[in-house]
Nucleic acid binder design. Sequence first.
DNA 1: GTTAGCACTCTCTTCTTTCGAGTGCTAATA
DNA 2: TATTAGCACTCGAAAGAAGAGAGTGCTAAC
Lengths: 359, 359
Amino acid sequence: MALSERKKKILAAVVDEYIKTAEPVSSKAIAETGNLGCSSATIRNELAELVALGYLEQPHTSAGRVPTPAGYRLYVNELMQRQKLSVEESEELNRKLNDRLAVMDTAISDIGKLASQLTNYPALALTSNASVTVRRFDLIYVDANTFIIVALLSNNDVKNKYVHLPVSADRSLVQKLGTLFNASFTGITEDKITSALIAATERAADDTIGLTAVIAAFCIETLNEVNSVTAYVTGENRLLSQPEFRDPDKAHKLMSYLSNGGYVFPETGSEHGEEVRVLIGPENVAEELKDSSVIVASYDAGDNTKGLIGIVGPTRMDYSAVAAKLGMLAAGLSKRLGGGEAPPEGMHNKLIIKGDDRS
Amino acid sequence: MALSERKKKILAAVVDEYIKTAEPVSSKAIAETGNLGCSSATIRNELAELVALGYLEQPHTSAGRVPTPAGYRLYVNELMQRQKLSVEESEELNRKLNDRLAVMDTAISDIGKLASQLTNYPALALTSNASVTVRRFDLIYVDANTFIIVALLSNNDVKNKYVHLPVSADRSLVQKLGTLFNASFTGITEDKITSALIAATERAADDTIGLTAVIAAFCIETLNEVNSVTAYVTGENRLLSQPEFRDPDKAHKLMSYLSNGGYVFPETGSEHGEEVRVLIGPENVAEELKDSSVIVASYDAGDNTKGLIGIVGPTRMDYSAVAAKLGMLAAGLSKRLGGGEAPPEGMHNKLIIKGDDRS
DNA sequence: GTTAGCACTCTCTTCTTTCGAGTGCTAATA
DNA sequence: TATTAGCACTCGAAAGAAGAGAGTGCTAAC
């Protein structure tokens, strides 16, 4: 059953008002603000029906109305006016983003911080790298006991490890291993690094001191680490400024859930573009999030890497503003990091070489 | 004026009890638990004097007593029995520490997490590197537009940067710059890297494409970053489990202060060993910490690097337990990372090459 | 110097009352 | 038929009142 136009307007007004005040919304308040030409009595009738339909609820008989998750869902899907950021706002956002990117190496967690600041909610950020491989190995010989492994990954990330051995290795072994690793360990995913392969390499290099194993272990560890999806959570404390988290126990529960980084994103349905997804209350899988909402935007971080950036807050949340901001942020990130379009002059993957790319 | 033995005993009993219960302590409770052979009436007299001396206070006339910062100070300095961790406890702690160190690269922040878990308070961790320099440069030529800068620092940390240039550089330039940087940029602190030095290097290398500047910038940035003191804060949410932070506003204030990482440690007086310092309430410099306590332990992270690890909590804190744990942790870290004693077999600076060093 | 005894103080809890915002329903109205 | 004014009713929040009890300070006896 489709809702009448007036019901929709009223529902939207309730949600808007509730988002603003965090107090149950009365019929009178709607009559006054939501310029539909009818009295509070009429609105009361409509409200009663909206309750019956499951979009609203009453904390108690003589209280105003509060949106249910279903109500928020309808609001998000159809009713809310997609908020366009003003020119100034989006300019400011872009400037901030640029500032961040200019100094960033730690990338993801920093982006999360930015999102958290912009929205005043806790933010989570993560990248999921489809299948990063090592593109190139370099072994730097420091002294007989010491060398550095440098691995350039397929996503242009560089990882390194300082290795100090209790026994000495001669230069030729290090060199030989460098060649061998570049021949057999590049371009393959972590699961292709079998113990057979390692053993074969060890034999081929005449390695009697176990150096091969060390490098292989580094390789496995690095790929594992890069490919694993870990969420960076920042700004948990911002929860405390929300009225629904004035109860310390409730706040503590959610905050420690977030801090433990166990967050799993539900499968993203579509694969393209900077889609913004909204998960309202019970739509979340995790028990701890059942009465919170999550908004995530995905972006293309280039080289098969997809990034997600999201915020967590009470179900009573300014969905349109947050979605707009996150969308903007994700779009900005895609543009700068993504593979599709050419990156701006003088800039490549997470890295600014020189100059200033602010528009 | 020196306190009588009995007064000391009573004060200690008040603090112990208050730490346990978070409730004002009554004369009766002390008479029962603190086996001094006298009645509650006598204790009341003593308590009144302790209040007059400023070691205790009363929330209101007919309430029990609560320690003042001065009371805690005396307690920490003289009264508390330095808690020895049981053999099992210290073994467990050492095991956990080893587990952490075995997988750690991100070092400091992980140590903080461990401290936070062990104590159930928010923890902060930082290292202050006196004057790290670059020990060795390597430039890895990937292709004409791309190369990797690898810098081995004097603290055995390795930093790298992936660089993609809009113009191409030939191999010989990269090689030449490698030599030049190793000659002039190693062993010097960041402030010694002058623009004159950079210009001279650029000339000497016949660098027309600005590569020298890029490497120098990386160098400056890296040294700056490594030498700058940033505190990693973890476990802020644990504050919420403390009764004194049930007020969300109070909790929020402190938590966002901590999250902003602006924490400055007061000068450490003595320079040697794994000293544990306690800062009680108003002894803290930051306004936000005036009614919290901070306990920090310093450790020697080797190569001129000093590390600090601490926790933040209400003034009502189990000082002896926390101090014991942090001290233990710091000692463990000094032993593993520090320069003094020889590191355990097969292990060098933050890095386990192979094998298992659990005792 | 110590202690029993007791009046006094102050908070905390519980109960009651009051107030008012907001509803649901009914009857009148366009 | 849809809307609205009017009004009784409900329920929570705030304010007050009363009582309980924990703990003190003081006094007088030991």
